[in-house]
Amino acid sequence: MALGKLEQVILLALAHLGGEGHGAQIAAVIEEQTGRTASPGGLYTVLDRLQDKGYVEGWIGDGTPERGGRRRKVYRMLPAGARAIRSWYDGIRQLGDSARACMDALADGAG
């Protein structure tokens, strides 16, 4: 199954968090690393989809003071999810490695 763009980013963020994190944490990682903001509504929509695909599993966690005591929705990456993101990442990295020389030549030559 192919991964959507947001799905890739979310799975990467989840891996960055050690495989487990709640909505706000995932959004924060995405914003810090990519500069892109993800609204919780959008985020949960994609996470629901990933859960359907069997890539992550979600449950309800405790609240914390900074969220006004509201409970969190926590997600953990499942082995299938890890495999999916790893295979996508490996593909991208191979592609990048082989394209590197050409990118460098074109970019530096133009500069």
């Binding site: 709640h22 909505g23 706000a24 959004a27 924060a28 919780p40 509504g41 985020l43 949960y44 309800i60 609240g63 914390t64 900074e66 969220r67 006004g68 509201r70 409970r71 969190r72 929705k73």
Partner: peptide, 20 residues
């Protein structure tokens, strides 16, 4: 405005980000 089913998590996330 949010559907009751997700409201708690979404508002919680937004509050958390707000405090940060």
């Amino acid at each position: 405005l949010l559907p009751a089913r997700d409201r708690e998590f979404i508002v919680g996330d937004l509050d958390e980000r707000f405090s940060r």
